[in-house]
Design a protein around this nucleic acid. Structure first.
Length: 104
DNA sequence: AAGCTGACCTCGC
DNA sequence: GGCGAGGCCAGCT
């Protein structure tokens, strides 16, 4: 069964995220042409659960790991990000100014 | 078919 | 930066 165009684009973007960098749902949504519906990106990631894509490198606009509870273990996401050299603030938020990556 | 839900974003206070 | 309200697309009941 073929993937939808939207599904394919999001998948491609997530696969492109380099280690030590993070992107936001909004950036992905904008790159896919659906800036108004970043929620759909979250839905795609839910489908991506089980794939080999680094969905842990996707955070929300404030840098909070909103999707960590959707992983097998809530600590896994933060652990992986820290392992890749990503720094966190005091409120468990990623420092987007240093690690933000936008698809080209 | 209609309505609710969701790993969100933007706007205003 | 935080809180509340509105809006978006797709999937599920």
């Amino acid at each position: 069964m073929p993937d939808t165009d939207f599904f394919s684009r999001v998948k491609d973007v997530v696969a492109r995220i380099p280690a030590g960098k993070v992107t936001t749902y909004g950036a992905i949504a904008e790159f896919c042409g659906i800036r108004s519906s970043a929620r759909t990106v979250g839905w795609v990631l839910n489908s991506l659960k089980g794939s080999n894509l680094p969905c842990h490198r996707v955070v929300n606009r404030t840098g909070a790991l909103t999707g960590k509870f959707h992983f097998d273990d809530p600590f896994l996401m933060e652990s992986l990000l820290r392992s890749e050299g990503i720094e966190f603030g005091q409120d468990e938020r990623v420092i987007l100014e240093r690690h933000f990556w936008k698809p080209e």
